[in-house]
Design a protein around this nucleic acid. Sequence first.
DNA 1: CGTATGGTTGACCCCGCTCAATTGGTGTGG
DNA 2: CCACACCAATTGAGCGGGGTCAACCATACG
Lengths: 247, 247
Amino acid sequence: MLRPTGPAPTPIADDGDDFHFCSTCAFSAACLEGGYGKSQLRELHVLVEHIGPFHEGEHVFREGDPFNAIAAVRSGTIKTYVVDANGREQVLGFHLPGEMIGLSAISQSRYPCNAIALDPVVLCRFSFTSMAALATRMPGVQQQLFRLLSQDIGKAALLAGNYTADERMAAFLISLSRRFAARGFSPTRFVLTMSRTDIASYLRLAAESVSRVFRRFQDEGLIRVDRREIEILGPDLEELARNVLRD
Amino acid sequence: MLRPTGPAPTPIADDGDDFHFCSTCAFSAACLEGGYGKSQLRELHVLVEHIGPFHEGEHVFREGDPFNAIAAVRSGTIKTYVVDANGREQVLGFHLPGEMIGLSAISQSRYPCNAIALDPVVLCRFSFTSMAALATRMPGVQQQLFRLLSQDIGKAALLAGNYTADERMAAFLISLSRRFAARGFSPTRFVLTMSRTDIASYLRLAAESVSRVFRRFQDEGLIRVDRREIEILGPDLEELARNVLRD
DNA sequence: CGTATGGTTGACCCCGCTCAATTGGTGTGG
DNA sequence: CCACACCAATTGAGCGGGGTCAACCATACG
């Protein structure tokens, strides 16, 4: 145990109901900053469909499925991945509460990857055609869509660089930390919902290397690890990640 | 020389003028498929500004510059890159005629990377705010923007995978081949406008490794290389690239 | 309990990097 | 036209980070 008081609270974006959007949702900014009135907000809201819960191991969509909706993670974690010709799984990313999935499917109108729940997941589903139609009438929505899409372009480039195992792992942990912090959760203590194998695939490492890096990081006092619970102990890890994350 | 008859013709998307769009432009589909009349086409066209030529080594934009426009490459090649804390250059991508640059800048309203011309470059510049405004009135334009943004999300993930030097190099060459083919240029014979160092950075290899892989590919009869001219000799290279490109 | 699954650790090895020397093409000045 | 310089590219030698393979450990579950 990292703390005798028990594990950190599970990150959940849980302040949405039938009439209000989750404040952690990727679209909350579009609504609030756009200065839209309640009627317009409702117009956007009517497109939203809360679906789930998906239980651990359940697929949200699979590669090749016809695309018709994007979704925001409301609670839980989604892993996206592809399977290559040799049957090897390649993890593309992890999606935390408040983050979008399905954006890469727009261009081909089919999902180009699989999406699976790593723990119990609830989603806010947006019909994309309706969303796009609405966007023509609400510039703030259109702009938010452009922003979300543009963001994802940059994200993918991060880990594509030629960095050491240590740098990539540090960047991975710091990225999680910041994303949790942005949603109001602890940036220093959190639970990894993904397996070592998943992390390894995402970071282009062997699972054994993930183990070894975790251990070395702990020996060096950068983090504390207990199974899947992580505690970040100081600013040193962030320093390591700097090259990759380019603040 | 690869051929005694001389080098392949330089890829140029050159059929646009003051009243018509380049047929190779990323937006041509939006216009043609959208079934827009000439007046509407002109409305889109008035946003376009042909700029350049940029000469080799000249920057189109730099990291941190305020974002106000996206652009389509009309002729030439653009390299995008970032510089890390150690001053090391990391190449993010190469943009051929017909392809867009600047899309990743939308979310931050600043360019997150540098863009430099590798040879004489002419661009079609689109003011993004005007473009977005137009998109609210022309759903086809909006959809095309969504498509372009979505495409770029998937692209970055390609080379992010855990592949061998041979696989990545094969994928790089086949990708170029297909992109040339899509614009009507030869898929089997083309000129690399980028240096070995650029290719190496893009593929996360040492420049020396690029040399060695080229040589081995040539010895194995996969390609013919003469300086920066490339000829793809058979379908074997495509087979090698299959894992990465996932057709 | 026994079994299964995920994670850890150790031993060994190989792909691709580093360092260094050489080649070759291109441009420039005499 | 040649001599020289300069830089990109090539080639070789040696090495090391991270992969592979295998054994072992720990927790969860029947």
